[in-house]
């Protein structure tokens, strides 16, 4: 069993649309949406939720005003400025470190568990799907991502499926690291723009940091030939394979509005053809 994670560094390069298309093409896999912050894959794959599990993670300080003598020790100790002058706790700033509660001489502060989101085990027409929803403004997205990956692995083992296809979050921080570390391969979707290339360079560095086999796909490849060349040159220099070049096509947006992936929406379109060719190459490289 192996994990293929799709990342982009920069948001909006077409990651989710391509994952949904690969989901349509690849047989025998588990889908995992690790973009727990702003997950969109479900908008194209319409999962039927079989199991909904609460995700409890982290703590928040809660002050019992009747016990508080306003000595101010907590104010001095909190490094996150989460306790205001009037001894009201700013829940948004509280990181749940528990220092205020531990050192309060009156034991007036209690640490309460956070219900930080939900994890879903679902089924789709393209196979089983594990996804999640982090509560807005919550921390610990990395932990929730790790949970999603764990459940996806269990599912793959149980149903004897050889592949986990992961839709990753944008950026290079906590949830991306949690999605990427330990995966076999990463497919990075980029676009031929100055910022696309800048962000690609950073996400490639991250993939190399974690020694994950890397493939690159250039989406909207007809937008700027010069930037396409720069991207190819950069990847070639690093010995990274470009395994797809997909043209810009408003059919992708139309498919999204129809709630479909491009392979089912318009299989004859050039975009669909290119994605199929890329999928074939991926199958060969990954031996699936």
């Amino acid at each position: 069993m192996q994990e293929l994670i799709v990342l982009s560094g920069k948001g909006g390069t077409g990651k989710t649309s391509i994952v949904a298309s690969l989901a349509q093409i690849f047989q025998d896999k588990v889908l995992a949406d690790c973009d727990v912050d702003a997950a969109d894959l479900h908008l194209l794959l319409h999962p039927t939720i079989l199991e909904k599990k609460e995700f409890w993670s982290g703590k928040t300080a809660f002050l019992h005003p009747e016990k508080c003598i306003e000595c101010g020790q907590c104010l001095d100790l909190c490094r996150f400025k989460a306790i205001q002058e009037n001894f009201i706790i700013d829940k948004i700033s509280c990181e749940g470190c528990g220092v205020c509660a531990y050192f309060c001489p009156q034991k007036a502060i209690e640490m309460q568990e956070n219900m930080a989101g939900y994890l879903f085990v679902s089924t789709t027409s393209c196979g089983p799907m594990i996804h999640a929803r982090l509560g807005t403004g919550e921390e610990n997205s990395g932990k929730l991502v790790a949970e999603v990956r764990n459940r996806a692995r269990q599912k793959a083992q149980k149903e004897n499926l050889p592949l986990i296809l992961i839709d990753g979050p944008p950026g290079i921080g906590c949830p991306v690291i949690a999605s990427l570390a330990g995966a076999k391969s990463v497919l990075i979707i980029t676009e031929p723009t100055l910022s696309g290339l800048h962000d690609l360079e950073r996400v490639i560095q991250l993939a190399q940091h974690f020694q994950v086999q890397t493939f690159v796909c250039i989406n909207k490849a007809d937008l700027n030939p010069r930037q396409v060349k720069e991207t190819i040159d950069h990847c070639t220099e690093l010995g990274i394979k470009i395994i797809g070049q997909i043209p810009y096509d408003e059919e992708i947006t139309k498919a999204q509005i129809a709630g479909q992936n491009i392979i089912e929406f318009n299989p004859q379109s050039l975009v669909a053809q290119e994605i199929k060719m890329m999928a074939q190459k991926l199958k060969e490289y990954l031996k699936i």
Binding site: D37, T136, G137, E139, S141, G171, G173, I257
Partner: peptide, 28 residues
């Protein structure tokens, strides 16, 4: 700001007097 809705965004938004939310007219 960074994209998303979790702690990095909150950190960036803190102390703001006004937020302009940018989006595009697609389902995502």
């Amino acid at each position: 700001c960074p994209p998303g809705t979790s702690c990095p965004v909150i950190e960036a938004l803190k102390g703001s007097d006004f937020v302009l939310l940018i989006t595009e007219p697609t389902p995502f």
